[in-house]
């Protein structure tokens, strides 16, 4: 029994050591593993104007304006607290629309405008047929509340900013 017990202890020790090491490493890298910054987080970024970074948030309703060349687009990215104006020249992904999440890569210029080189659409965790989406929209317009499924299905209201 002793060699078995010893091997068991070794395996558990390996798991513990690797787990602790991974936890410490991930904790240390926490800031660097961020894929994008929210509009409110931008202010806290050091040397923000010199860095190439990603800005993520929702495209503000009614903010999308296209220039006459058909390629340059202006829109605002918001987290419902802070709003950052974005300029982008290029082709937008299919899912890009007002009220949807986006991740833009680029630089914040001195005037506080974000000059994007790439814009990616960010999908949220909600999946439903178009009829249900339409019904939810109608209900929320009538009731003025956040759309929610009833019964066994629940939406995580507001968890996805």
């Amino acid at each position: 029994m002793t060699p078995r017990r010893r091997r068991l202890m070794i395996v558990l020790l390996i798991l513990l050591a690797v787990g602790v090491a991974a936890a410490l490493t991930l904790n240390a890298f926490r800031g660097n593993l961020v894929f994008f910054y929210g509009p409110s987080q931008l202010a806290g970024v050091e040397k923000v104007h010199e860095r190439n970074l990603r800005l993520g948030g929702l495209v503000e309703q009614g903010s999308v304006k296209r220039e006459d060349d058909g390629l340059t687009v202006h829109f605002n990215v918001t987290d419902n607290v802070t709003t950052v104006p974005v300029t982008y020249k290029g082709i937008l992904p299919d899912l890009f629309r007002e009220g949807q999440g986006v991740v833009a890569q680029g630089r914040l210029n001195a005037g506080g405008e974000f000059m994007a080189e790439e814009v990616l659409a960010k999908h949220d965790e909600n999946y439903m047929p178009p009829e249900v989406a339409a019904a939810l929209k109608q209900a929320s317009e009538a009731g003025g509340k956040t759309p929610q499924f009833t019964g066994t299905l629940m939406m995580q209201g507001g968890s996805n900013k």
Partner: peptide, 30 residues
């Protein structure tokens, strides 16, 4: 790390849609 990556960090990948007692996927797709 894979499982919780979407909760711990800002990712391009969407957060999880299914959990204990919660789902953000409509029944017809679930």
């Amino acid at each position: 790390i894979i499982y919780y990556s979407v909760q711990w960090w800002n990712t391009l990948h969407q957060p999880q849609s299914l959990g204990v007692g919660m789902s953000t996927i409509h029944a017809s797709m679930l």
